[in-house]
Structure formats: C-alpha cells, structure tokens
Design a binder for these strands. Structure first.
Lengths: 222, 222
DNA sequence: TGAACCAGTATTGTATACAAAATGCCCGCG
DNA sequence: CGCGGGCATTTTGTATACAATACTGGTTCA
C-alpha cells in the first residue's frame, strides 16, 4: 500500500469524504494530480478504484464527478451488503475452527472495552467492528464474496453514519456479535445467517432515522 | 467501446479464452501490448478489468498470470450469481411494466426459434438468453447489483459450458423463462425469485455433470 | 431572436521514456 | 555439493509529452 496510486487513492478519498468537494461537482485528473502530488498516471488508477466504489462517477463523455447518492442508493447498498454478508455468515458457520471462534471473542471483547468506559472511543469501536466482520468474511473463504463486500463496506456511508450511533446502538452491536459467536460455536448456519441479517438490517434503520423517511422518488439526497 | 483500452480488453480476453495461454501461465504487459498492437497504457487498463473479473490474477509481487479456477471457484460463482439474480428477479417483479413484460415475451420467442429448428443455433440462443437476463436486471433498477452481476456473468464459464447443453436443457431454459414471465405478469416477487433460483441452480448442475463430481479439496481444476 | 456552426479551450486517452522493484542466475565460499 | 550474496535482466510503476475528443462561447445567417 505504499505505491503512489495507493496513496493517491487514500488522499482523493479523504478529500472527497471531507466534504471539500460536493456531490455532482466536477473533478479533473489534473486537479487531483496537483492535490495528491502525483502525476496523472497513478491518479487515474486511483480514480478507477473510486469509480468501482461509486464514490466517483463519469458522465457519458468521460468527465469525472463526485457521486451524489440518493436515499434509495443507500438503501440498496445496505440491502446488498446484508444479502452478501448473511451468506458469508452462513458459510463461516460451516468452516470456522474453534481457534477462529476464540479470535472473534477476543475481538468482541476489545469492541466492548472501547465503548464501556467513561468516554466511549468510537474510532476504536469501528476498528474492532471492521476486524470482526473481516474475520467472518475471511472464514467464509470466498474470494469473490470478499471482493464484492469490500466495495460495499468501503463505502463511506458506514463511517458517516456510525458517528450518529447512540451508546445503546453500539451495545446492541456487541450483543449481536455475541449471538453470532454463539451461532458459530453451535455450527448453526441458519442461526448465523439470521443474526447477521437482523444485525445489519437494524444498522440500516438506525441510519435511516438520521436521514429521514423513505421517499420513493428521486429526492432525499444526502 | 472503440477506445484502445476497450479493444485491448476484448483481444486479451479472447486470447486467454481461446486457450492460447493456459491457466497459471505468466503474461507480461509488454507481451500483451505486442499481441494487441497497443501501448502498455491501455493494456494496463484492460488488464485491470480482467483482474476484476478474476480472469487474470497477480502474484503477491504484482506479476500477472492466467487464473486457474478450481471447481469450488466455479460453484461459488454460480452460487453468487444465483443469489444476486434471484434478488434481481424479485425486484423486477415489483417494477416491470406491461410493455417490459411483453418485451421479455418477444425475446423468449426469439430464443425458442433459435433452438426449434432442424439445426439449433446455439449462438443465437445464447444471445437471446443474455438479452433476457439483461432485461430482468435492467428492470431491477439497481446499479450496484448490475455491476456485480456483470462481473459474474461476463465470466466465461457460461460460454464454455453452454456448448455442452443438450437440446432438452435449452428447451427447459425456455420453459423457465416462460414461468418467470408468468410470475412477472402476476407481480409475484416470491414466485419470480423461486423460478430464477431453480433455473440457475439447474444450470449449475448441468455444468457440474460435465466437469465431474464435487471434490471438497483443491483438485478438480478446469 | 434563435439556431447552427466554427474556433479556442479544457479534459481525457495514448505512447514513450525512465525509475523502482522483483526475479533469477552465476560465482565464490564453506 | 549446497547456499548466500550480488549483479544483470525482466517486469511493473510513474512521469511527461502529445493526440483525440468533448465542451464553451461567440458569431453569423436566416
């Protein structure tokens, strides 16, 4: 991750997420080259990755813009993530070793420590949460699933929204993880799938409350 | 699709699928530039797309190889495709207009004509089949779903295996499409999902018969 | 007035040269 | 004979110049 294109990727992503450029605004490769300090070649590589994640989009004539996601887009992302990650949980339940289950328990302990203290450490929570889900995905042992979920989870909605979680929400996440671990220990794929499903679906509704009700039409941009 | 990188993509893809290079063989960007007649810049763009489709893979040190898919890899692809396309069928059932249903009927008529003649035209069947599934995906109106399925369906397994379908298999496909259309006309998402599921799962088993039984371990390369 | 065209500019696409990194080979040493 | 170090070669990564394409604004003509 030390190649120029990787750094360019990280910097452009941060730049967009910081809000310095707004949705639907145009970006040019030259601009991004100046901002990142690299030439257009690695910038193009980075931009292509960000296009894959749909953080940037191109017009029909190949001009580059910051994507603006509608509420429906975001619901779609949550739904797809749920579908894929439920599948991952089911596969993981069939494959996880006792040692891997123990690892998950350790990660979830860390996650709890991050929130069960005077001043909850949301960043640490998010990091532990990411590791937890990564471990499940890893155990599913399905490279294409990993690739697809990577694009969805990278999606910055998760980061933006996590800030709005209440302490109760975070605690419920930890409990969900506990139950998931129980399902894994019991080697029960259906249980694992169901827990993962409700875990992620609740996350969506927590998010939806902060954004506003469903629209059905095309407004409700974020 | 007339840019150099697009042509390079098509040529490299054809070159690999032709079997001129075998799985696990190394390719270099220079080689591919010579083969395609373009410079390395568009070749690198094309190679990245083929990496996304997992037709090409890179070693940990960034050297480029032709992927070799195990039977488990292929089963995974079929499973993921089934999962995603069932979801697409469900969404389509909620959204398809009467005109779109009529279009699907027309496409399926074409598909039948291709096989119900003295000398079945498999290429025409495949083309109609692709259009049918594309129309369903379109109606699902979910860009990320489309992106993901695109990568899976592009995967050449489908093409390689379709040749081994018997006439009965092709006829069954047409009947599946009929039932799917009925489900759409009835606006019944669950029905549509179920039909799509059995349609694709049968395709997997038809394929599996030609390749051999499940392995469980890592052999069974194709 | 307004629509079509033309030139100038902005932006993306491609080729090429060079830099960095990895691999493999060969030689010396134990 | 084995094996470790280092140079030569291969291969990928980056910068830059140029080509092709798309946009913008203004001008002309009906």
């Amino acid at each position: 991750m030390s190649r120029a294109s990787d750094q360019a990727y990280a910097r452009i992503r941060a730049h967009v997420l910081s809000g310095a450029v707004k949705p639907k605004e145009q970006l040019t490769e030259d601009q991004l080259a100046q901002i990142t300090g690299f030439s257009r070649t690695p910038v193009r590589e980075a931009v292509r990755r960000l296009e894959d994640e749909l953080l940037l989009v191109r017009s029909e004539s190949k001009r580059l813009f910051v994507a603006d996601w509608s509420r429906d887009d975001i619901e779609e992302m949550f739904t797809l993530r749920q579908m894929l990650e439920c599948h991952a949980a089911e596969r993981a339940a069939r494959r996880l070793t006792a040692a891997q289950v123990a690892d998950l328990e350790a990660v979830n302990r860390t996650l709890r420590e991050a929130i069960e203290q005077p001043e909850p450490d949301v960043a640490r929570f998010l990091e532990a949460n990411r590791r937890f889900h990564d471990a499940v995905l890893d155990a599913a042992h399905s490279p294409r699933l990993g690739q697809m979920l990577g694009r969805l989870v990278e999606a910055p909605v998760v980061l933006r929204t996590a800030r709005s979680y209440s302490l109760d929400d975070l605690r419920q996440s930890a409990r969900d993880h506990d139950e998931l671990i129980a399902a894994f220990a019991a080697r029960d794929p259906e249980w694992a799938r169901a827990v993962m499903g409700s875990h992620l679906r609740r996350a969506f509704h927590t998010f939806a409350k902060t954004v506003g009700p469903a629209t059905g039409n095309a407004d409700g941009e974020v």
